[in-house]
């Protein structure tokens, strides 16, 4: 048991601070590719800054999802990557693109659109789901009321008193009828 506990703690530590061997390998490959394809990687590094920011600053469950921003950010970068590749595909061409405010505003607007999609769609879907939950709760209450109506408060078991209370409200009327 103690051994197992130690092992789990170690794994957590590795996850929190250090990359795994596979991760390290990918990082090295990525850096090498970045160096090999320096113009494209420069363009993408600058173009994907909103995604990087989203990745770094989003708190789990809150803020926009990185993949949503990334999707739109990539869509914004694609025309310029094609432009780079169809041109000189050198570092200067890449610098020219990233220093062109019009191009960068297109890329960042696309990323902003990603933020917007995240905000709007999340809002619509969560509201819809919330309303659906509320409706289900009402349906459950109705079903339970029907059961109580058919079987009396005893059917509620431990919650009998809640339903008896509702019966009690009717009682004075019944007594009057008896009188």
């Amino acid at each position: 048991m103690a051994k197992k506990g130690k092992k789990t703690a170690k794994t957590k530590k590795a996850k929190a601070g250090k990359l795994s061997a596979k991760g390290r390998l990918l990082l090295i490959v990525g850096i090498l590719l970045g160096v090999v394809f320096l113009p494209t990687s420069t363009l993408l590094f600058i173009g994907l800054l909103p995604t990087i920011a989203s990745f770094l600053f989003s708190i789990r469950g809150k803020g926009p999802r990185t993949s949503t921003v990334f999707a739109m950010n990539v869509a914004g970068c694609v025309p310029f990557v094609i432009k780079l590749w169809s041109g000189g595909n050198d570092f200067d061409a890449a610098v020219e693109i990233v220093t062109n405010p019009r191009y960068m505003s297109v890329i960042y607007t696309a990323a902003a659109f990603g933020y917007m999609i995240d905000w709007v769609v999340t809002g619509i879907v969560s509201s819809y789901l919330y309303q659906r939950g509320v409706s289900r709760m009402k349906a459950i209450k109705n079903s339970q009321q029907n059961l109580v109506k058919n079987w009396g408060a005893n059917v509620a078991g431990g919650l009998q008193s809640q339903y008896e209370d509702s019966d009690d409200k009717k009682k004075p009327q019944k007594d009057k009828a008896d009188q």
């Binding site: 769609v121 509201s127 919330y130």
Partner: peptide, 17 residues
Amino acid sequence: YGVVNGKDAAAIVAWTI
């Protein structure tokens, strides 16, 4: 409530676009 599902849906929409 439903935010995770919402974000999933947003990601799908974003990736589709």
